[in-house]
Design a protein around this nucleic acid. Sequence first.
RNA 1: CGGGGUGUGGCGCAGCUUGGUAGCGCACUCGCUUUGGGAGCGAGGGGCCGCAGGUUCAAAUCCUGUCACCCCGACCA
Length: 586
Amino acid sequence: MLLRMSTLFLRTLREDPADAEIPSHRLLLRAGYIRRAASGGYTWLPLGYRVYRNVERIVREEMDRMGAQEVHFPALLPREPYEASGRWTAYGDNMFRLKDRRGSDHLLAPTHEEMFTLLVKDLYSSYKDLPLWIYQIQTKFRDEARPRAGLLRLREFVMKDSYSFDTHDSGLDASYAAHRAAYIATFDRLGLDYVIVSAMSGAMGGSRSEEFLHPNQVGEDTFVRSAGGYAANVEAVRTPVPDPIPHDDAPAAHVEDTPDTPTIDTLVALANERFARSDRPWSAADTLKNVVVMLVHPEGSREPLVVGLPGDRDVDPKRLEAQVDPAVVEAFTEADFAANPALVKGYIGPAALGEKSSSGIRYLVDPRVVAGTRWLTGANQAGRHVFDLVCGRDFTPDGTIEAAEIKAGDPAPDGSGPLLLARGIEIGHIFQLGRKYADALDLKVLDENGKLVTVTMGSYGIGVSRAVAAVAESTHDEAGLCWPREVSPADVHIVATGKDPAVFEAAQRLAIDLVDAGLTVLYDDRRKVSPGIKFTDAELIGVPTIVTVGRGLADGVVELRDRRTDARRDLPVAEAAATIRQAIQA
RNA sequence: CGGGGUGUGGCGCAGCUUGGUAGCGCACUCGCUUUGGGAGCGAGGGGCCGCAGGUUCAAAUCCUGUCACCCCGACCA
């Protein structure tokens, strides 16, 4: 394949587009790979589409290699299957819904679990047919509240989604492992660094779930990692539980007047002023903060919940939501306080809490709040706190909850060292759906004993368009894009400089030789463009190998250059094609 | 959905405060010169000033409304 710059549908931009902030977005626009067509929707231009297809090809090859079979569904689907699974309503505003001319409801699929499940139900009815792995590479639609960051968060994007169908849990484990291995192979080929973090399966239901995150500051996912190799989604981090502390010699709890201390800061300040300790000052970590929220259960009932945690930490809303799923968390309003007089805003304490207390309000604490820990906390009266309240002696929570924020430096659950907070781009997600969809859509097969059993499923996604952005993010430099060989829009970028017709003849001959050898060549044959522009464009476009044919030709050489390292060497013209082929295949 | 910002030619921007019918750089076209790191000179083409109302003799500019887009947050298998 020969791409001539003189006729290529391409216009590079000298300046950064004003609304592009992150490197992949900025450079893909500037280098003429994509153009914005809508909020959250981009057009692939010829160079960009070549890169996109390479990424897609790699994903497809690895899926085929593992033995998955490709199918293709419509993106425009009727309401009924999603009604049956409950997602017509459960998916919320992020699903595009529309009506046809007869007024029937349709949707633009955000994901295809229902359709895959129904397809298998349609065709298969025996355990002998399983396991089955099928996938598609499809445009997905999500009405994102805020598309952003170029290709990273789109409203219309391409995803490879695959699904596994097994009779038994052990089969699901094997299917999951096979996908995990295929993803590792895929991202390795794409040249993308990743960490595999355990994740909560959230609204999808199911059990085991892991995300492949490409560590990058522009990513939207926060995860934690330790030097010892632990990595997890913040929602999935388990707090190491300290041993109980002996408290036989602990002083008795005592209530003190603490006027005007509705916040941890004011409480700590007052404690240090009026109740100073000899050994060390009071700090937020000595206080037990009791945060009240309102849970809304799926069937609509509302339940107050109090979360107790050390005062130097806040509740992490995502971690809390993940713990109470499928209930959702709402703020506790003034009206709610009025309806629950046992809760004194700013002075809530354990004595008024717990399912067995008079209020009956569920009270869950951070795992660090173990028996024997001693706290300064609310006394359930305005302007009063209780000191030396000992967990296990003076109060017993209803249980623990992983809702406190994770802080850098917290210990990793597996003892592998302190945690660091990092950001990542979610490039893949695998999880065990279990029987959620098979139950909802009644996918059953006959097992070895002639008994009907519900099939267990796994679901596995790779964001193909997002992966293009992730590769660009991870490989670019100051001058421009810098593609790994397998995804580059071309194998070689030949730059012809000067005005000597002999240069263009030699460059074209070289280009044709390389094309004949099966390579894709991007040939800058523009006659009236200055060398500076051609070099700058070549660096922007980011083909890994750049060959310059120009003034060296008089000495019988062309220059071979590595885009990434900038290493250069002269090659005799006669051997150029062979040497370049070697260099590329190496 | 909350907060902030921006809409003027393909891209980046000025003009708006103080109304007088649009300008600069890049890109594009033609000619001549130039050709190893974003060339020079000359001549050109291209803009419903996001949209709709209003004020005014006159609106890119003032007023009202509306739409779109970007950023932060919320949200997000």
